[in-house]
């Protein structure tokens, strides 16, 4: 059963990675002059939307957290709204942290915000899909040994890799090479994307290799 689940996880993650690659290539067919570096803002939007949609769809299909309870429609709506609010708040929070890290406060605010959206897509949105708007569950997952399924382990790994990728992505900014990708926030968003993709690939492999040690306590 676990092997099969790891397979599903791998498939889902590879699909996500493929979506990111496609998001960088396909729009060039429809949009004139589209390129990841040239029209970075468009790419940020496209990438976020693609990853978000795919994540939601995968979540609906695979249903990794089977919740047996049938919920009323109203409850679902309120849940959805809550999710939206949480997502928005996480964007704001990421934006604030990026500004604290030294991003300009007023100029290029769109760039910063879209970068925050991208980061939220890579991290918060997955949490929302998997765990719902349930902060305690989030805290549990992101604490030591808190993961209770391979899906949650994967969530941990991808989120961490995205954030780390963005962190490392800031390194080349001060270099005086005058390359187009050193412009704010391109290197950071590329770093986050590569980190996320790396996380997507690492997660199933890591879980596969450590499947002996991983003992998920059930509730």
């Amino acid at each position: 059963m676990r092997e099969a689940e790891i397979g599903r996880l791998l498939a889902a993650n590879l699909l996500c990675a493929l979506a990111i690659v496609l998001a960088a290539v396909v729009p060039a067919v429809f949009l004139d002059g589209f390129s990841v570096l040239g029209t970075h803002l468009t790419w940020l939007c496209v990438c976020s939307v693609c990853v978000a949609t795919l994540n939601i769809i995968l979540h609906l299909i695979l249903k990794p957290n089977q919740s047996p309870k049938r919920r009323s429609f109203a409850h679902k709506i309120s849940r959805f709204l809550k999710c939206c609010i949480y997502f928005f708040m996480s964007c704001i929070l990421f934006h604030a942290i990026i500004v604290l890290y030294g991003a300009p406060l007023i100029e290029s605010v769109t760039e910063t915000f879209l970068f925050a959206v991208l980061l939220s897509t890579f991290t918060t949105l997955q949490c929302l899909c998997l765990l719902g708007p349930n902060i305690q569950a989030w805290i549990r997952v992101f604490s030591k040994n808190g993961a209770m399924s391979i899906w949650e382990s994967s969530l941990q790994i991808t989120s961490m890799c995205s954030v780390l990728g963005a962190w490392f992505g800031a390194f080349p900014i001060p270099l005086d090479w005058d390359r187009p990708w050193q412009v704010w926030p391109i290197s950071c968003s590329l770093g986050a994307t590569f980190g996320y993709m790396a996380g997507l690939i690492i997660a199933p492999l890591w879980i596969h290799w450590n499947r002996k040690q991983l003992t998920y306590k059930s509730r």
Binding site: M89, S90, L93, F94, I97, T123, T124, C127, I135, Q136, W138, I139, F142, S143, K144, A147, S153, Q156, I157, S159, M160, V163
Partner: peptide, 17 residues
């Protein structure tokens, strides 16, 4: 727990697992 969830969520991501 709820109130300061922001800071928790953000920082817990940096955690080693």
């Amino acid at each position: 727990v709820k109130q300061n969830f922001d800071s928790i969520r953000e920082t817990s991501e940096c955690k080693n697992i």
